[in-house]
Computed example of a mutant assay.
Amino acid sequence: MLVAAGVAALVLPGPGLLLIAAGMALLAMRYEWARKLLRPIKRQAMHLARQSVQTWPRVAFSLLVSGLLVGLGILWGIGLPVPGWWPANPRWWLFGGWGTGATLLASGVVALGTIIYSFRHFRPRTPS
């Protein structure tokens, strides 16, 4: 179900890749073929997590993006009035309401959690 939801979320609002990875992780607990498929993905994810916290500008940028996701999710959820410059039909303005806002908000929270995990586990320690 998680893999199917992840595939759907690749074209719909939501954390598609994260749902696919979670579904594959559950399948890997039981099936060797899923474990084999998950190994290179996990290795690459850990490599990217390690790289993402090597410098302060990378950490700051990651925090900024996760904060923007949370803020955008809240703004999307509360629904701002349609601005005068919006060229399309007003019903297409912030399409999805709280459904889309909640997925953006969840993505920002997951991103923040990932940054904290990466910082605690992969950030080079400086001697005190």
Results as ranks from 00 to 15, higher is better:
residue 60 A to N: 02
residue 60 A to I: 05
residue 61 F to M: 15
residue 61 F to Q: 11
residue 62 S to W: 00
residue 62 S to D: 00
residue 63 L to N: 11
residue 64 L to H: 01
residue 64 L to D: 01
residue 65 V to M: 07
residue 65 V to C: 02
residue 66 S to T: 15
residue 66 S to Y: 07
residue 68 L to E: 09
residue 68 L to Q: 10
residue 69 L to E: 07
residue 71 G to P: 03
residue 71 G to M: 12
residue 71 G to H: 04
residue 74 I to W: 14
residue 74 I to K: 06
residue 74 I to Q: 05
residue 75 L to K: 05
residue 75 L to M: 10
residue 76 W to V: 08
residue 77 G to W: 01
residue 78 I to N: 02
residue 79 G to I: 06
residue 79 G to T: 08
residue 80 L to T: 12
residue 80 L to C: 03
residue 81 P to K: 09
residue 81 P to H: 09
residue 82 V to Y: 09
residue 82 V to P: 06
residue 83 P to C: 09
residue 83 P to N: 07
residue 84 G to R: 14
residue 84 G to Q: 14
residue 84 G to W: 00
residue 85 W to R: 08
residue 85 W to T: 10
residue 85 W to G: 06
residue 86 W to V: 01
residue 88 A to R: 12
residue 88 A to Y: 14
residue 88 A to L: 14
residue 89 N to E: 09
residue 89 N to W: 04
residue 90 P to S: 08
residue 90 P to Q: 05
residue 91 R to C: 00
residue 92 W to C: 01
residue 92 W to G: 00
residue 92 W to E: 11
residue 92 W to V: 00
residue 95 F to M: 08
residue 95 F to Y: 10
residue 95 F to T: 02
residue 96 G to T: 01
residue 96 G to E: 03
residue 96 G to W: 00
residue 97 G to F: 04
residue 97 G to L: 05
residue 97 G to C: 04
